[in-house]
Amino acid sequence: MLNIFKRLWQVNWAEQWQYRANLIMYLLYWLVSPIIYLSVWTSIASAKGSVNGFTAGDFVNYYMILLVADQFTSNIVIHNFAYKIQDGSLSGELVRPIHPMLTNTLVNNLAFKALILVGFTPVWLILTLIFKPDFSGVTWQGVLLSIPAMLLGFIIGFLLSAAITSLAFWTTRVYSLHEFYYAVILLFSGQFVPLTLMPKIVQDIAQYLPFQLFMYYPIQLILGKLTTAQIIQGFVVGLVWLGLSILFFNFVWRRGVKQYSAVGA
């Protein structure tokens, strides 16, 4: 099995490396919205002194760490898998004795991340020089705890995206549905604004959803802003969702593959 992963890594890394010119473009997309939100909130906070306890500096710290957390927890499953169902090219992968989603697609995502990190690191360092975040509140415990949190966030996000992408077995086109899912993430992950500034009802719901593991929860862990009780609750909710997303993905995948009709192939 290890050999299979090693070979898949070589193939997928070579494939991603071909597109290294696109890296700059991807980085541009990935930068714009956090910088917009950062600007909006720091401009409000510096006009008023603070927003609900957040100073301009706090917002800078939050969004600078958000850029990192987003890098680690996000995935590109829809871009890399949906078209295979649409044009029938998945057939070739289905006859192999390994799981297409949990081997090839997973490794492809990891190769993409590895490549992105190469471009991401210098850009992020330049941004820290421009925005001058204050990371004096960051603790080692927080950083260490954030690693399993982001790993959990990545796995759950990967399985949920994989399950939603697999709905293409029935509908062929799945991009609209994915756009809806993306809006849900935007609302509950803390991407737009730290969740504590959201309306109370959104905060209450977000606590029990997995999406805060993508951004808000690891960010606050790193910045050392969570109480012990909140940290434990976050991990418990995360583990429950890990179980649920495994079940959900398995359910959709098994039925989907039976449904698959290899369009166009």
């Binding site: 909006v40 401009s43 409000i44 008023k48 737009f192 604004v193 959201m198 309306p199």
Partner: peptide, 11 residues
């Protein structure tokens, strides 16, 4: 509305 819950003017 979230922005203007927290402020009265933006820029």
């Amino acid at each position: 509305s979230i922005i203007f819950n927290n402020t009265t003017t933006l820029g």
